[in-house]
Structures are given as structure tokens and as C-alpha cells.
Amino acid sequence: MTPDEVDAFVSTLDGCRHKPRGWYVNDRLVARLVDARTLLVRVPIERREDLIERWPDAFGIPPRMEAHHKIEAYLERAAPEAVREAIRRAWEFQRYSGLRQTDT
């Protein structure tokens, strides 16, 4: 996937808005580009392993992110459906979460 394809998909999700630092719903981070090839996605910790098991080449969790609700998607090698699934999980998490979160 390209960053433009990510943007096109995210814009189809209800309430998602592109801001300078990424895509947000209800002012909560859904995803942001780290660079042109890496997308940081805010996925609940308990739902990350499933993504990695299904698409091991598409995702990773750098040590600095292990304790956070985040996963990296490697756009050049990830299947588009894998990236869309991660973004969808992040959107649901942020849209329906009743907890106030720090969006970084």
C-alpha cells in the first residue's frame, strides 16, 4: 500500500479525519505515517498478536512500543487487506473507547 491508498481507505471510515500528524477519530489517534514505508497504527495490545500471526511480514512491534497500544505496518510488504484490518481495529478501538487516551 502507498500512503495515498492508506489515506483513501481511512477517509471511508466514519468520523476519521486527516490532521497534520495522522488520522484521528474523536481526536484520538488511529494511525500516522512514520515515513513513506511505515505506518504506526494504534491497535489494542490484546489484538496485536492476531495481526502478527496472520501476517508476520506485514507487522512488527519495536521494543519501544511493547507496552503501548501500537503496531507498525510495513507498507511495502504488507498485503493491503492486512493494513486495512489493522486500521479498522484502530478505528473501532478509538471510536468506541470510553477511556481518554494520550495520542502520540
Results as ranks from 00 to 15, higher is better:
residue 6 V to W: 03
residue 6 V to C: 12
residue 8 A to W: 04
residue 8 A to M: 10
residue 9 F to N: 03
residue 10 V to L: 14
residue 11 S to H: 14
residue 11 S to L: 15
residue 13 L to T: 12
residue 14 D to P: 00
residue 14 D to F: 10
residue 15 G to H: 07
residue 15 G to S: 07
residue 15 G to Y: 12
residue 17 R to F: 04
residue 17 R to A: 14
residue 19 K to Q: 15
residue 20 P to R: 13
residue 20 P to M: 10
residue 21 R to P: 08
residue 23 W to N: 08
residue 23 W to D: 02
residue 24 Y to H: 11
residue 25 V to Q: 03
residue 25 V to S: 02
residue 25 V to E: 02
residue 26 N to P: 00
residue 27 D to V: 00
residue 27 D to A: 05
residue 28 R to I: 01
residue 28 R to T: 03
residue 29 L to N: 09
residue 29 L to R: 03
residue 29 L to F: 06
residue 30 V to D: 08
residue 31 A to G: 13
residue 33 L to V: 12
residue 34 V to S: 11
residue 34 V to Q: 14
residue 35 D to K: 14
residue 36 A to G: 00
residue 38 T to S: 07
residue 42 R to V: 05
residue 43 V to H: 09
residue 43 V to T: 11
residue 43 V to Q: 09
residue 45 I to H: 04
residue 47 R to Y: 04
residue 47 R to S: 07
residue 48 R to H: 01
residue 48 R to A: 00
residue 50 D to K: 08
residue 51 L to I: 11
residue 52 I to M: 12
residue 53 E to M: 14
residue 54 R to W: 04
residue 55 W to G: 01
residue 56 P to M: 11
residue 57 D to S: 09
residue 57 D to L: 05
residue 58 A to R: 04
residue 58 A to D: 06
residue 58 A to W: 04
residue 59 F to K: 02
residue 59 F to N: 02
residue 60 G to I: 04
residue 61 I to K: 06
residue 63 P to D: 11
residue 63 P to S: 12
residue 63 P to N: 07
residue 64 R to K: 12
residue 64 R to C: 05
residue 64 R to F: 13
residue 64 R to I: 09
residue 65 M to P: 00
residue 65 M to F: 09
residue 65 M to T: 05
residue 67 A to F: 03
residue 67 A to G: 00
residue 69 H to K: 03
residue 69 H to M: 01
residue 70 K to I: 01
residue 72 E to R: 13
residue 72 E to A: 10
residue 74 Y to H: 13
residue 74 Y to D: 13
residue 74 Y to F: 15
residue 75 L to T: 02
residue 75 L to P: 06
residue 76 E to L: 14
residue 78 A to K: 04
residue 79 A to R: 04
residue 79 A to C: 00
residue 80 P to S: 14
residue 82 A to V: 08
residue 82 A to H: 09
residue 83 V to N: 03
residue 83 V to R: 00
residue 83 V to P: 00
residue 84 R to N: 08
residue 84 R to F: 02
residue 87 I to H: 10
residue 87 I to A: 09
residue 89 R to S: 03
residue 89 R to G: 01
residue 90 A to V: 08
residue 90 A to S: 15
residue 91 W to A: 01
residue 92 E to V: 08
residue 94 Q to M: 04
residue 94 Q to F: 00
residue 97 S to D: 08
residue 97 S to N: 11
residue 97 S to E: 07
residue 98 G to N: 06
residue 99 L to Q: 11
residue 101 Q to S: 05
residue 102 T to G: 02
residue 103 D to M: 02
